[in-house]
Amino acid sequence: MKTLRDIRLLFWRKMMETLRNPIYIVVSMLTPVVYLLLFSPLLKKLTIPGYTPSDVLNLFVPGLLVIVAFLSGLFVGYTMIDEVKTGVIERFRVTPVSRFALLAGRVLRDLVNTLVIVIFFTLVAIPFGFHVHILGYLVLLILVALLLITTSSFGNALGLILKDEDRLSPIVQGINLPIILLSGMLLPMVLAPTWLQVIAHFNPAYYAVEAGRLLVAGHIFQAQVGEAFLFMVPLAVFVVFWATRAFNNALS
Protein backbone atom coordinates (compact mmCIF):
# COMPACT_ATOMS: atom_id res chain seq x y z
CA MET A 1 0.00 0.00 0.00
CA LYS A 2 1.29 3.42 -0.95
CA THR A 3 0.75 5.02 2.46
CA LEU A 4 2.65 2.23 4.24
CA ARG A 5 5.51 2.61 1.79
CA ASP A 6 5.58 6.36 2.37
CA ILE A 7 5.58 5.84 6.14
CA ARG A 8 8.46 3.38 5.88
CA LEU A 9 10.54 5.78 3.77
CA LEU A 10 9.89 8.73 6.06
CA PHE A 11 10.48 6.64 9.20
CA TRP A 12 13.92 5.64 7.97
CA ARG A 13 14.78 9.23 7.11
CA LYS A 14 14.24 10.19 10.76
CA MET A 15 15.76 6.97 12.12
CA MET A 16 18.97 7.66 10.20
CA GLU A 17 19.15 10.98 12.02
CA THR A 18 18.99 9.18 15.37
CA LEU A 19 21.52 6.55 14.37
CA ARG A 20 23.92 9.22 13.12
CA ASN A 21 23.62 11.19 16.32
CA PRO A 22 22.96 8.68 19.11
CA ILE A 23 24.02 11.22 21.73
CA TYR A 24 20.37 12.19 22.12
CA ILE A 25 19.39 8.63 23.01
CA VAL A 26 22.33 8.24 25.36
CA VAL A 27 21.45 11.43 27.23
CA SER A 28 17.81 10.40 27.38
CA MET A 29 18.86 7.07 28.85
CA LEU A 30 20.91 8.76 31.52
CA THR A 31 18.06 10.95 32.78
CA PRO A 32 16.06 8.11 34.38
CA VAL A 33 19.23 6.68 35.87
CA VAL A 34 19.94 10.02 37.51
CA TYR A 35 16.43 9.94 38.97
CA LEU A 36 17.03 6.43 40.32
CA LEU A 37 20.31 7.38 41.94
CA LEU A 38 19.53 10.85 43.23
CA PHE A 39 15.79 10.87 43.88
CA SER A 40 14.56 7.37 44.75
CA PRO A 41 16.59 7.15 48.02
CA LEU A 42 14.43 10.02 49.32
CA LEU A 43 11.34 7.87 49.01
CA LYS A 44 12.60 5.14 51.35
CA LYS A 45 11.75 7.14 54.47
CA LEU A 46 8.27 8.14 53.33
CA THR A 47 5.18 6.30 54.44
CA ILE A 48 2.90 6.00 51.47
CA PRO A 49 -0.38 4.07 51.77
CA GLY A 50 -0.03 0.65 50.15
CA TYR A 51 3.76 0.69 49.82
CA THR A 52 6.53 -0.59 52.04
CA PRO A 53 9.99 0.97 51.88
CA SER A 54 11.29 -2.11 50.02
CA ASP A 55 8.87 -1.89 47.10
CA VAL A 56 8.81 1.89 46.84
CA LEU A 57 10.35 1.64 43.35
CA ASN A 58 7.11 0.01 42.20
CA LEU A 59 5.48 3.31 43.07
CA PHE A 60 8.10 5.44 41.44
CA VAL A 61 9.27 3.63 38.28
CA PRO A 62 5.91 3.33 36.45
CA GLY A 63 5.39 7.05 36.92
CA LEU A 64 8.82 7.82 35.56
CA LEU A 65 8.26 5.61 32.50
CA VAL A 66 5.09 7.50 31.72
CA ILE A 67 6.71 10.89 32.14
CA VAL A 68 9.66 9.91 29.94
CA ALA A 69 7.18 9.06 27.18
CA PHE A 70 5.24 12.24 27.77
CA LEU A 71 8.27 14.50 27.59
CA SER A 72 9.99 12.82 24.64
CA GLY A 73 6.85 13.45 22.64
CA LEU A 74 6.11 16.95 23.81
CA PHE A 75 9.46 18.44 22.82
CA VAL A 76 9.63 17.18 19.21
CA GLY A 77 8.15 20.50 18.07
CA TYR A 78 11.62 22.06 18.10
CA THR A 79 12.98 19.71 15.43
CA MET A 80 9.81 20.26 13.45
CA ILE A 81 10.41 24.01 13.49
CA ASP A 82 13.94 23.43 12.19
CA GLU A 83 12.53 21.47 9.30
CA VAL A 84 9.88 24.10 8.61
CA LYS A 85 12.55 26.79 8.50
CA THR A 86 14.86 24.86 6.21
CA GLY A 87 11.98 24.17 3.81
CA VAL A 88 12.02 20.38 4.25
CA ILE A 89 8.37 20.16 5.27
CA GLU A 90 7.30 22.40 2.40
CA ARG A 91 9.24 20.23 -0.02
CA PHE A 92 7.48 17.10 1.23
CA ARG A 93 4.10 18.79 1.02
CA VAL A 94 4.63 19.45 -2.69
CA THR A 95 5.17 15.72 -3.32
CA PRO A 96 2.15 13.40 -3.68
CA VAL A 97 3.04 11.71 -0.38
CA SER A 98 0.11 10.96 1.94
CA ARG A 99 -0.27 13.68 4.59
CA PHE A 100 -0.82 11.02 7.24
CA ALA A 101 2.51 9.42 6.29
CA LEU A 102 4.26 12.77 6.78
CA LEU A 103 3.15 12.65 10.41
CA ALA A 104 3.31 8.89 10.99
CA GLY A 105 6.92 8.48 9.82
CA ARG A 106 8.07 10.96 12.45
CA VAL A 107 5.87 9.63 15.25
CA LEU A 108 6.97 6.07 14.60
CA ARG A 109 10.63 7.04 14.95
CA ASP A 110 9.86 8.78 18.25
CA LEU A 111 7.97 5.69 19.38
CA VAL A 112 10.92 3.38 18.69
CA ASN A 113 13.34 5.73 20.46
CA THR A 114 11.08 6.04 23.48
CA LEU A 115 10.45 2.32 23.82
CA VAL A 116 14.20 1.70 23.73
CA ILE A 117 14.70 4.24 26.53
CA VAL A 118 11.80 2.92 28.60
CA ILE A 119 12.84 -0.72 28.35
CA PHE A 120 16.45 0.16 29.14
CA PHE A 121 15.34 2.04 32.22
CA THR A 122 13.17 -0.85 33.38
CA LEU A 123 16.12 -3.23 33.12
CA VAL A 124 18.31 -0.85 35.12
CA ALA A 125 15.65 -0.44 37.83
CA ILE A 126 15.27 -4.19 38.47
CA PRO A 127 18.54 -4.61 40.39
CA PHE A 128 17.56 -1.54 42.46
CA GLY A 129 14.50 -3.44 43.69
CA PHE A 130 11.81 -2.89 41.01
CA HIS A 131 9.52 -5.96 40.85
CA VAL A 132 7.81 -6.31 37.54
CA HIS A 133 4.95 -8.52 36.39
CA ILE A 134 5.72 -9.31 32.75
CA LEU A 135 2.19 -9.42 31.31
CA GLY A 136 1.16 -6.30 33.20
CA TYR A 137 4.31 -4.58 32.04
CA LEU A 138 3.52 -5.35 28.40
CA VAL A 139 0.10 -3.76 28.83
CA LEU A 140 1.84 -0.75 30.39
CA LEU A 141 4.07 -0.51 27.31
CA ILE A 142 0.92 -0.21 25.19
CA LEU A 143 -0.26 2.66 27.39
CA VAL A 144 3.15 4.30 27.15
CA ALA A 145 3.03 3.93 23.36
CA LEU A 146 -0.44 5.51 23.22
CA LEU A 147 0.75 8.44 25.29
CA LEU A 148 3.84 8.90 23.12
CA ILE A 149 1.80 8.78 19.91
CA THR A 150 -0.46 11.45 21.37
CA THR A 151 2.25 13.80 22.62
CA SER A 152 4.53 13.35 19.61
CA SER A 153 1.67 14.09 17.21
CA PHE A 154 0.71 17.06 19.36
CA GLY A 155 4.30 18.35 19.56
CA ASN A 156 4.82 17.97 15.80
CA ALA A 157 1.57 19.72 14.93
CA LEU A 158 2.35 22.52 17.36
CA GLY A 159 5.73 23.10 15.73
CA LEU A 160 4.13 23.02 12.28
CA ILE A 161 1.46 25.54 13.24
CA LEU A 162 3.58 27.94 15.32
CA LYS A 163 6.71 27.78 13.07
CA ASP A 164 8.79 29.62 15.65
CA GLU A 165 10.68 28.54 18.77
CA ASP A 166 9.78 31.68 20.67
CA ARG A 167 6.11 30.92 20.29
CA LEU A 168 6.49 27.20 20.96
CA SER A 169 8.51 27.49 24.16
CA PRO A 170 5.92 29.16 26.41
CA ILE A 171 3.33 26.58 25.40
CA VAL A 172 5.35 23.42 25.94
CA GLN A 173 6.97 24.79 29.08
CA GLY A 174 3.57 25.85 30.35
CA ILE A 175 2.09 22.39 29.78
CA ASN A 176 5.12 20.50 31.01
CA LEU A 177 5.14 21.28 34.73
CA PRO A 178 1.43 20.99 35.61
CA ILE A 179 1.19 17.70 33.71
CA ILE A 180 4.13 16.25 35.63
CA LEU A 181 2.95 17.47 39.04
CA LEU A 182 -0.65 16.40 38.45
CA SER A 183 0.32 12.98 37.11
CA GLY A 184 1.20 11.85 40.61
CA MET A 185 4.52 10.66 39.30
CA LEU A 186 6.66 12.14 42.10
CA LEU A 187 4.11 11.65 44.87
CA PRO A 188 0.87 9.70 44.36
CA MET A 189 -2.29 11.75 44.04
CA VAL A 190 -3.81 9.80 46.96
CA LEU A 191 -1.99 12.31 49.11
CA ALA A 192 -3.58 15.27 47.31
CA PRO A 193 -6.61 17.28 48.47
CA THR A 194 -9.85 16.60 46.59
CA TRP A 195 -9.73 19.67 44.32
CA LEU A 196 -6.28 18.66 43.07
CA GLN A 197 -7.47 15.10 42.45
CA VAL A 198 -10.37 16.48 40.40
CA ILE A 199 -8.05 18.51 38.19
CA ALA A 200 -5.76 15.50 37.79
CA HIS A 201 -8.60 13.64 36.08
CA PHE A 202 -8.15 15.91 33.05
CA ASN A 203 -4.53 14.83 32.71
CA PRO A 204 -3.83 11.89 30.39
CA ALA A 205 -0.54 11.20 32.17
CA TYR A 206 -2.44 10.77 35.47
CA TYR A 207 -4.44 7.83 34.08
CA ALA A 208 -1.33 6.21 32.68
CA VAL A 209 0.57 6.58 35.96
CA GLU A 210 -2.29 5.20 38.08
CA ALA A 211 -2.82 2.26 35.74
CA GLY A 212 0.93 1.72 35.42
CA ARG A 213 1.34 1.13 39.16
CA LEU A 214 -1.36 -1.52 39.13
CA LEU A 215 -0.05 -3.12 35.95
CA VAL A 216 3.52 -3.67 37.13
CA ALA A 217 2.06 -5.45 40.17
CA GLY A 218 0.10 -7.71 37.80
CA HIS A 219 -3.38 -6.23 38.43
CA ILE A 220 -4.46 -6.11 34.82
CA PHE A 221 -8.24 -6.31 35.08
CA GLN A 222 -8.78 -3.29 37.28
CA ALA A 223 -11.14 -0.36 36.80
CA GLN A 224 -8.24 2.13 36.64
CA VAL A 225 -6.61 0.21 33.79
CA GLY A 226 -9.83 0.20 31.78
CA GLU A 227 -10.32 3.86 32.56
CA ALA A 228 -6.84 4.68 31.27
CA PHE A 229 -7.54 2.98 27.93
CA LEU A 230 -10.97 4.58 27.69
CA PHE A 231 -9.37 7.98 28.10
CA MET A 232 -6.19 7.46 26.07
CA VAL A 233 -7.43 5.68 22.94
CA PRO A 234 -9.95 8.35 21.83
CA LEU A 235 -7.49 11.08 22.78
CA ALA A 236 -4.74 9.52 20.64
CA VAL A 237 -7.12 9.11 17.68
CA PHE A 238 -8.30 12.69 17.98
CA VAL A 239 -4.81 14.20 18.23
CA VAL A 240 -3.46 12.13 15.31
CA PHE A 241 -6.42 13.24 13.21
CA TRP A 242 -5.88 16.87 14.14
CA ALA A 243 -2.13 16.71 13.50
CA THR A 244 -2.67 15.13 10.06
CA ARG A 245 -4.95 18.03 9.22
CA ALA A 246 -2.18 20.43 10.18
CA PHE A 247 0.02 18.81 7.50
CA ASN A 248 -2.80 19.17 5.03
CA ASN A 249 -3.87 22.73 5.80
CA ALA A 250 -2.80 23.84 2.33
CA LEU A 251 -5.93 22.45 0.78
CA SER A 252 -8.31 22.37 3.71
Binding site: M16, E17, R20, T86, V88, E90, R91, P96
Partner: peptide, 18 residues
Protein backbone atom coordinates in the same frame (compact mmCIF):
# COMPACT_ATOMS: atom_id res chain seq x y z
CA UNK B 1 -0.50 18.34 -10.28
CA UNK B 2 2.10 17.37 -7.68
CA UNK B 3 3.35 14.56 -9.89
CA UNK B 4 4.02 17.03 -12.71
CA UNK B 5 5.72 19.84 -10.83
CA UNK B 6 8.97 20.37 -9.02
CA UNK B 7 9.29 23.11 -6.44
CA UNK B 8 12.30 24.76 -4.87
CA UNK B 9 11.23 27.18 -2.15
CA UNK B 10 13.15 30.17 -0.87
CA UNK B 11 14.56 28.10 1.99
CA UNK B 12 15.61 25.27 -0.28
CA UNK B 13 14.30 22.09 1.26
CA UNK B 14 17.29 19.81 1.52
CA UNK B 15 17.38 17.79 4.71
CA UNK B 16 20.43 18.95 6.67
CA UNK B 17 21.32 15.78 8.64
CA UNK B 18 21.35 13.59 5.49
Amino acid sequence: VRRHIGYVGQNGGSDRPA
